[in-house]
Design a binder for these strands. Structure first.
Length: 363
DNA sequence: TAACCTTTGAAGAAG
DNA sequence: CTTCTTCAAAGGTTA
């Protein structure tokens, strides 16, 4: 449970670790350097179009366009208010400064014109497949094309989610599974919801890519979804026809994960580190150094993520993904006699402070 | 090649 | 209710 609601304060403050960062501006530049250029966007769009160039636009997508337009209008209203409240420094100049997806051309609009909001939000385009909520999030990139030829629900998803879902309303059609309350309830912060172009991660039951959905892992063939951008391994398509992959609906990211997404690049740049384990340690420290207000923003984002996730996948449970990762470490711990638990717990138990060898800027 | 490492938080299971 | 476990991201490292 997010701690922000309980006025109780143990970790959130961590004021003794308060660190001021003087290079917020640099960060912006770095983000911009990594930014998604218009050319990239155009290429991306065209590639998507090409891949989905069925003679007639799939019905689901056409209907999605309409739904999306409606949603954008609602979103515009909401965002006008929302953005006014987001002038805190943290969001300024960071990837959070706005929701970059708003700047992207709407892939659902046949003319590729900017969405309704695009002119309102001066935003740096994130890199390919960036999470609009957390603009440094690279999504797994499933070409939008899949929506064209796989508009049908993955069997398991269909059964799971469709069973108890009310019939879709005409104006909110096959964009995503429609939550009982309709699209209007979905928080605008769930920007990725609006922008499959940026995601490419997974294809939702409607055939629209969704960041929370990734093809079943454990198969390197699918790595193109995960890390690569918009490419597909040559042998992938036939395999797919042969045996459709079951997409995995990922857990929504928690506050810290969202924070990591955003700050990782910054830490990497500052510390010239690449190893994620080290980066994450730094990020963990910085997380504790954040003020309550700063953390609260991430908790709020995470809460919205969970909210939307629940709306999109009502039947989904975190347990669904249990066992999909093979773990060896736990066995190691168990073998070692007494199970120390997670490293965090282990350090807590023995009063260890792992962060001892930090380079200056990385503290 | 796949798991590990490392972080925090959420959720589910177990006691 | 409390405690424990697993997964979420990421990418270099290791077995």
């Amino acid at each position: 449970m997010p701690q922000l609601s309980s006025g109780g304060e143990e970790d959130l403050g961590a004021s003794d670790e308060m660190i001021s960062f003087k290079d917020e501006g640099d960060q912006e530049e770095k983000i911009q350097e990594n930014a998604f250029t218009e050319r990239d966007l155009a290429d991306l769009k065209s590639s998507l179009v090409n891949e989905s160039e069925a003679p007639a636009l799939p019905e689901a997508i056409r209907r999605a366009q309409d739904a999306h337009r409606v949603y954008q209008e609602k979103l515009a209203d909401h965002m006008e208010d929302g953005l006014k409240h987001q002038e805190e420094p943290m969001y300024k100049g960071s990837g959070y400064s706005s929701y970059p997806f708003l700047m992207l051309s709407d892939p659902y609009l046949s003319n590729g014109s900017m969405s309704t909001l695009s002119s309102k939000v001066p935003v740096v385009q994130p890199s390919h497949g960036v999470h609009p909520l957390t603009p440094l999030i690279p999504y797994n990139n499933e070409p939008f094309s899949h929506s064209s030829h796989s508009p049908h629900l993955p069997a398991d998803l269909n059964q799971k989610q469709g069973a108890h879902r009310p019939p879709q309303t005409p104006d909110i059609p096959a964009f995503y599974p429609i939550p009982p309350g309709g699209v209007g309830q979905i928080s605008p912060s769930m920007g990725w919801f609006t922008h499959p172009l940026m995601l490419g991660s997974g294809v939702h039951t409607t055939g629209i890519p969704h960041p929370a959905i990734v093809p079943h892992s454990g198969n390197k063939d699918m790595e193109c979804y995960d890390r690569g951008m918009l490419y597909r391994k040559p042998h992938f398509e036939p395999k797919r026809e042969k045996e459709p992959k079951k997409p995995t609906i990922k857990k929504p990211l928690n506050a810290f994960m969202l924070y990591m997404k955003e700050m990782r690049a910054k830490v990497i740049a500052e510390c010239t580190l690449k190893e994620s384990a080290a980066i994450n340690q730094i990020l963990g420290r910085r997380w504790h150094a954040l003020s309550r207000e700063e953390q609260a923003k991430y908790y709020e984002l995470a809460r919205k993520e969970r909210q939307l996730h629940m709306q999109l996948y009502p039947g989904w449970s975190a347990r669904d993904n249990y066992g999909k990762k093979k773990r060896r470490s736990r066995e190691k711990h168990q073998d070692s006699g007494s199970d120390p638990g997670s490293p965090k717990k282990c350090r807590a138990r023995f009063g260890l402070n792992q962060q001892t060898d930090w380079c200056g800027p990385c503290r």
